[in-house]
Design a protein around this nucleic acid. Structure first.
Lengths: 126, 126
DNA sequence: CGGCATCCCGTAGGATACTG
DNA sequence: CAGTATCCTACGGGATGCCG
């Protein structure tokens, strides 16, 4: 990989991780976000619909996750009616752009899981 | 749609996230891992070399990160000499396979950062 | 229904000191 | 140099209860 014109910043194999990017990924790839995103990519969901779809999440964590995703412009909170309160969560266009990177990640995880489990067992033996 | 263990990735618009995969991503995309990986993709590094390259990391967290990555087969700990102790960390072939997915992710973050910051400001105003 | 408020605990992870 | 050992704190996040 000669990189003859040298216009390009990163040399050879390295990737830098800027702090704002790191922070963003933390917000958006945290414990429950991917599950929520997975659901909302499929269809808009009500709050309790999401709870049922992701049984392991508590109400508190789900609220926090949705607020965080909303704040970052990834999901949208739509008030359907105010009496009784009815809310729907939808993925935004920006949120949809996360799909390809996330899928690449999941494919990597799926592809290398066996190798990684072998590595773990080997490590844990010593 | 049974498939509770969800090893199956995509039908139409949704992505499922299986628990082993979620756990793996947590181990491998955590606070310091990407910075470490970035360094080690460039060249093998000594422990204190990594500390200097990533000034914000504490010794304890760096040790933990390296152990975790080693356990998952992503980096390799090479004992160069035992008196005085000299250790070198290297990325493994498995570790190198993380590069493309990580770069896709970083490119996503870089590309959409402005839009996300706008969303945050808008959200924080209310 | 869609939350917020409160309590409570475990753990990640920083600071500091010491060791082979 | 490359850690281990302690101590300590913040915070994620579970459980429970209440409310418009």
């Amino acid at each position: 990989m000669p990189d003859t014109d040298g216009s390009h910043v990163s040399h050879e194999g390295a990737f830098e991780i800027a702090h704002p990017h790191r922070e963003l990924l933390d917000q958006v790839l945290d414990k429950w976000s991917l599950s929520v995103l997975g659901e909302l990519c499929e269809r808009p969901c009500r709050f309790n619909e999401l709870r049922r779809a992701i049984p392991a999440v508590t109400q508190k964590s789900l609220t926090a996750t949705l607020r965080r995703l909303e704040r970052n412009g990834i999901v949208e909170r739509v008030l359907l009616s105010s009496r009784p309160v009815a809310v729907e969560y939808r993925i935004t266009p920006l949120g949809k752009t996360m799909r390809p990177p996330v899928e690449v990640l999941l494919e990597w995880a799926a592809a290398h899981m066996p190798e990684i489990e072998r590595a773990r067992r080997a490590f844990d033996l010593e």
